[in-house]
Design a protein around this nucleic acid. Structure first.
Lengths: 204, 204
DNA sequence: ATAAATTTTAAACAACCATTTAAAAACTTC
DNA sequence: GAAGTTTTTAAATGGTTGTTTAAAATTTAT
């Protein structure tokens, strides 16, 4: 029976994704999306029933993009220091690919946390369950500083992601071109690696 | 001639500030503001000519709030380590007072950087000019690690402010009440102090 | 107290919003 | 290639947006 043309539906979804990423839910109109896709205004509702349903679908995808690869690294059977470096490298790669993603995620969760993160606790388990054990083991052996994962992760994510959250502010403040900014974030990432590993493994 | 009743104008501005902080520019309607102030819808335009002019006025105030106290500390004639600790403590105090401020600032700069930060470079000079010299001196004496202020500040601000930018995400992920969150951020602040000072002054 | 100036109000404004409709166009299927 | 199904379209829907208007209420100055 219902055999939706994936080409049109996905074209619309891709357009919506890029507009939502740029302007957020409140700042985006159905016409913005239709225009960006080069399609008729009615098609948003034909394929996705409403602007909000389309948004939620896209948000889920983007939240996956934000988390999934990091979680995969957490599950890898490698040493703690190597793992943390890989997490930072992966996080950096993800933001270089989609520089507005972090601010988008934070803004929309702030706007409508309950609807957008109904089952977040599973992420908590995935994100921390594995790492906690690894860190506890290292602590017992005196190889690592005494810090909870609940603080370590925001320190890593924060010090790294913040330059992307405030991309426009940093670009304007330091007068950076797009290329300059790329260079800036890469150097920054290396400082983060240095600081975090130093604090965890080589501090006095 | 024109003698505007400051009481009404400021009541409106305070209401607008709290609504804008919560919902952002795009998510706020003129009626939201009027309702929050308990005043007539026409008064927004009577006193401030337009929603955007009112917003810009409020944004300026809030950006000042975001920066001013930190800049004051930068100018104090105290040692580098003490200064960095004071900056972190002050930044923490500011965010505890207005937890949504950082996300607000970042979101709105992302939306309309050119209009909102016309003369940002003066902040750069204030923010960095003084600190750069102090750090360069310390470097010469081998007292501090080799890191540029352009990276040090985002690392400090980022690792600290990120838990407030992602307040709802963190609260939901770890199941924190408001009091739990306060406790969480205070502990976090102390980790940030430990990590930054350790990296700068006591690393191998 | 009266006149002038200022502030507040309810109502209206056109423009825009998300969404729906119903007909046209483009496809499938037999 | 005709009948049926799916996709696309232009137009219209009712509601909301920011802003304006003109009259009413209040305050100020004489």
């Amino acid at each position: 029976m219902k055999c939706i043309n994936l080409s049109s539906e996905e074209k619309l979804k891709e357009a919506a994704k890029s507009v939502f990423l740029k302007k957020g839910f409140a700042g985006t109109t159905a016409r913005d999306i239709a225009d960006a896709a080069g399609m008729n205004i009615a098609l948003t509702n034909y394929y996705f029933r409403s602007k909000e349903k389309l948004f939620i679908e896209i948000f889920r995808d983007l939240f996956q993009l934000y988390c999934t690869n990091t979680i995969k690294i957490l599950e890898k059977p490698i040493g703690l220091e190597e793992k943390i470096i890989e997490i930072i490298e992966e996080d950096y790669r993800m933001m270089k690919e989609e520089p507005t993603l972090v601010l988008f995620i934070m803004t929309e969760i702030h706007r409508d946390c309950e609807n957008l993160l109904p089952e977040l606790s599973k992420y908590k388990e995935l994100l921390n369950g594995i790492l906690i054990k690894q860190i506890e083991d290292a602590k017992k052996n005196g190889l690592v500083r005494d810090i909870e994962v609940e603080h370590l992760m925001p320190i890593i994510m924060g010090s790294l992601q913040f330059v992307f959250v405030g991309k426009n502010m940093h670009r304007k403040m330091y007068g950076l071109s797009e290329e300059d900014f790329d260079q800036f974030t890469e150097t920054h990432k290396n400082h983060v690696i240095g600081m975090v590993t130093n604090y965890l493994f080589r501090s006095s």
